[in-house]
Design a protein around this nucleic acid. Structure first.
Length: 382
DNA sequence: ACTCTGTCTCGAGACGCC
DNA sequence: TGAGACAGAGT
DNA sequence: GGCGTCC
């Protein structure tokens, strides 16, 4: 998934585009998050010692709900307001890629079954994680939970990453929150990575600014898209023998794939047969998305009893834990907690023109960074 | 020397008690 | 699925 | 922070 090696290309060629963001500087931001990707990660990671997913008594998986509940609350505690974006129908061009994944998954399923047969828990654990597939049920479970939590979600017509990018472009949200670098290729002005606020694994939130990526690479957006296709995307093959280094220099020299194909020695570097790079390019330039203006994104009060009825009543969660989790969520919306964090609230989510709060206690680097962003794209707050 | 490919490895959530 | 380390082949 | 537990 994503663009092969793009994150390294950016780190090497446009380091100024990358910025570690202090957690406090995230406060008040709205972020579009790829729901299916999150669910996928939870299904892989949330396991018990024997490698089995968490389930209720009926045997229904609950790993994804567990992850979604706690991560979402943790985001709110840090002032991040997520809007989750669910995948729609994948584009036809992705079917090759999806087929490959399906084949790999089948292999993993056999290996996992064999390991389970022989009681080899280590290998069962290893292979069963590779069999993970996000189903409609997983998605529906999470939509139900999000609705009860008062967290908005969007059903994208096609790729969630593209929809996230549009939301960020329009200013409905500040950034796309994703690990997937192709969100940049879809044109999100800001990509936030490692947006988990995990205490244990201390991974700093990293912001990538598209404008600075292009600046560092000295490319236009169209050139950047062509470079991403050369690096390797989900939609078509790339040219054998062209890796990150040559991809960057070829685009810089020739500006687009058409010219590269003219100039490149096709004996040394033959392009794939019937290479549909133009169609891939079109998917990045004009992806199938719902216009941001047509979307209503609102964060509402959580329905505590509803969440309890669902997670405790249906899914076997511990009631005390769920209630205290929801209390945390409620607290971040109203009351004293917001006051305490208010220092960081204004500078980030400003209505047009209020610069009064520009003063805060952050290190100079961070301060200049967010001050700049502030001027960019923001919507009125509700 | 540099670049790319292939193959291998590992890790992939979050909480709370200690 | 990706990201890093490595060996090996190609330019 | 490490480690057992969540369901």
């Amino acid at each position: 998934m994503g663009i092969h090696g793009l994150s390294k290309v950016i780190a090497d060629n446009a380091p100024a585009a990358l910025k570690e963001v202090p957690i406090k500087a995230c406060f008040g931001r709205k972020v579009a998050v790829d729901a299916s990707m999150s669910i996928y990660q939870f299904l892989i990671a949330v396991r018990q010692q024997d490698g089995m997913q968490l389930t209720n008594e009926a045997g229904e998986t609950t790993s994804h709900l567990m992850g979604m509940l706690y991560r979402t609350i943790r985001m709110f505690e840090n002032g991040i307001k997520p809007v989750y974006v669910f995948d729609g129908k994948p584009p036809d061009m992705k079917s090759n890629e999806l087929k490959k994944r399906g084949v790999k998954r089948e292999g993993a399923e056999k290996a996992a079954a064999a390991a389970e047969e022989t009681g080899d828990t280590e290998n069962f654990d290893k292979f069963s994680r590779r069999t993970v597939k996000v189903t409609k049920e997983h998605n529906d479970d999470c939509k139900k939970l999000l609705k009860l939590m008062g967290v908005p979600y969007i059903e994208a017509p096609c790729e969630a990453e593209a929809q996230c990018a549009i939301l960020a472009k329009s200013g409905k949200v500040y950034a796309a929150g994703s690990e997937d670098m192709d969100t940049l290729t879809f044109g999100t002005p800001v990509l936030m990575r490692h947006l988990t606020f995990s205490e244990a694994r201390k991974m700093p939130v990293v912001e990538i600014e598209l404008a600075k990526v292009l600046e560092g690479l000295e490319m236009t957006m169209d050139q950047f898209i062509d470079m991403c296709i050369l690096l390797g995307c989900d939609y078509c093959d790339s040219i054998k023998g062209i890796g990150p280094t040559r991809a960057v220099s070829l685009i810089k020299e020739h500006k687009n794939i058409e010219t590269i194909l003219e100039k490149l020695d096709s004996k040394k570097y033959p392009a794939p047969e019937d290479w549909p790079y133009q169609a891939a390019r079109e998917l990045f330039r004009a992806p199938n998305v719902t216009k941001a203006e047509e979307l209503d994104v609102k964060w509402e009060a959580p329905d505590e009893e509803g969440v309890v009825a669902y997670l405790v009543g249906e899914k076997g969660f511990n009631e005390d834990r769920v209630r205290s989790a929801i209390q945390k969520l409620i607290k971040t919306r109203t009351g004293t907690t917001q006051g305490r964090l208010g220092d960081y609230f204004k500078p980030v989510e400003k209505p047009a023109g209020s610069t009064s709060a520009a003063k805060r206690k952050m290190d100079a680097k961070a301060a200049s960074g967010s001050a700049k962003k502030k001027g960019g794209s923001f919507m009125k707050k509700k």
